[in-house]
Design a protein around this nucleic acid. Sequence first.
DNA 1: CCTGGACAGTTGACACTCTCGACTAAATGG
DNA 2: CCATTTAGTCGAGAGTGTCAACTGTCCAGG
Lengths: 141, 141
Amino acid sequence: MADTTGDDLTGALIDLFREVDALFSAVSRRMGITPQQAQLLCFAQHRQPSFGEAATLLHCDKTNVTGLVDRLQRRGLLTREADPHDRRVTRVHLTADGEELTGDFQDAVDTAVAARFASWPAADRAALLPLLRAATTALRA
Amino acid sequence: MADTTGDDLTGALIDLFREVDALFSAVSRRMGITPQQAQLLCFAQHRQPSFGEAATLLHCDKTNVTGLVDRLQRRGLLTREADPHDRRVTRVHLTADGEELTGDFQDAVDTAVAARFASWPAADRAALLPLLRAATTALRA
DNA sequence: CCTGGACAGTTGACACTCTCGACTAAATGG
DNA sequence: CCATTTAGTCGAGAGTGTCAACTGTCCAGG
């Protein structure tokens, strides 16, 4: 209930959001990190984000990133590296331990998702993926 | 990148999750409450959950709910009501202010979602809703 | 040059979230 | 009637998140 468009798209989005959140949190916890830490580690895997970029990616204030990085660095999962082109910026690099933990985390999430969709017909799964991407783009606007 | 099934369903789910999270958080903030408080208020609108039920719905420990309710009660958005059938349980009831704020919150989210999907063809929107629901059910397993 | 404004990260203060273990009170079932 | 279970609370402690104020660096315009 509670809707404007006649269909309850909002409710469906939030229900899905809650399930993904639950899965993501459960796996994070099992790995001994918080969901926010998991997110930062995943970002740091592809790029080597500056603190400001990390803040943007995480949708939070840059001052928050300082503490987040502090805790992960204390555990040896990442390091702060000076940016060679701009001495103001510090970049986040994963350590070998960080890479391993991040890989394990992603594998665990992938496995869990794959298991839950294992019984889906290929046609449904094929239809879902582009719609999810389109919905994401729509929401980003 | 990072995937088991060939398609990157996991990535798409997490991307969508992040957008919904961003929207939900932004609206909560605009309303002067936290996302967790918003969730609890929404639940309390339909049912009158006990603390344990609230904890289950919010995927968190019951001790967390005590503080959550404390803060919302201090702001006059809800009350603790004794359950007539079991004197151990306390139920959460929204006040008039709480109902109003919750309604405003839901309207704001609905409006934002509707606006972002306004340009979607009806056919796409019709296809999206059942797939979202099915995906939610799949993940719940 | 060199100075002022913009930008990157840090710090301290503060509120909220979240969990754990220990506790009280009430229900329940031998 | 007593043992157990269940509901909520409390205190301690770690993490998340914001804000305002600060330092250091970069990059113009004068």
